[in-house]
Amino acid sequence: MSDSLQLILEDVDGTQLETSCTRFAVMWQGREVWIQQVGNNQLMIGVDVEDGDTEYANLLLRPLATNLVSLELEMEPVESGEDDHVHGPDCNHDH
């Protein structure tokens, strides 16, 4: 299985450009929303968080129809003293 995503980019006049990458980001509401392929034919979607951010992002996915979903980016204040670090395979922590 390849970790490469096949992308089709389309501009307003309908011209399409095909390319591939391992992950990509969309700037949305001032945040980088990253998308990458992970095992079992799944996509992982995450929002970059900077040190000192006073808000963190929730991604809400809602079904709209048989083949459509809505993705909403909702910002929520960070509670003081809250550990906002999410441990994952790339965080370099021993856990």
Rank of each mutant, 00 (worst) to 15 (best):
I45W: 00
D48T: 09
H85F: 09
L61D: 01
V47E: 08
D3K: 15
Q29F: 10
E50S: 13
A65N: 04
H95Q: 04
S70G: 03
D48P: 01
D83F: 01
S70T: 03
N41I: 05
V33A: 04
N58T: 05
A65K: 09
Y56R: 14
I35F: 12
N67R: 10
V86T: 03
F24V: 05
I35M: 11
N67A: 08
L5C: 07
D11T: 11
N92A: 06
E82H: 09
L64S: 04
L60T: 03
T15Q: 15
T19K: 15
Q29V: 07
D90T: 03
V86H: 06
V49G: 11
D94F: 10
Q42N: 09
G39S: 13
T15N: 14
T15A: 14
L71P: 01
N58P: 01
V33L: 15
Q42A: 13
E79Y: 02
E82Q: 11
M27H: 11
E50F: 15
S70A: 10
C21T: 15
L71T: 01
D83C: 05
C21M: 13
A65V: 01
E32G: 05
T15K: 15
D84R: 13
H93Y: 08
V38G: 03
W34D: 06
A25V: 02
M75A: 07
C91V: 00
A65D: 03
P89V: 07
S4K: 12
M75F: 10
E18Q: 15
D90G: 04
S20Y: 13
M27D: 09
Q16W: 06
P63R: 15
L9W: 14
V38P: 00
E72F: 07
L9T: 06
H87F: 06
P63K: 15
Y56A: 07
H87Y: 07
D51V: 10
C91N: 04
N92E: 07
D83I: 02
Q37I: 08
D53V: 09
A57L: 04
L9M: 13
V33G: 01
R31P: 02
T22F: 15
V12W: 14
D90R: 10
R23E: 12
L71A: 04
I35H: 01
L60I: 10
E10H: 11
I8W: 08
G52P: 04
N67S: 08
H95A: 05
D51C: 11
C21E: 08
I45T: 11
E55L: 11
T66L: 12
L43N: 00
G39W: 11
E50D: 10
M44T: 01
Q16E: 12
Y56Q: 10
V12Y: 14
L68R: 14
D48F: 14
L64K: 12
L71F: 07
R62M: 04
V38D: 06
N67L: 07
V78F: 05
V38T: 12
M1F: 14
V47H: 12
R31N: 10
W34P: 01
V38N: 03
F24G: 05
D83P: 00
D83E: 01
V86Q: 08
G52A: 10
A25C: 14
G88A: 05
V26R: 13
A57T: 09
L5V: 06
H95T: 02
V12H: 13
N58V: 07
L43I: 00
V69D: 02
L68E: 06
I45S: 05
L61W: 12
E76L: 09
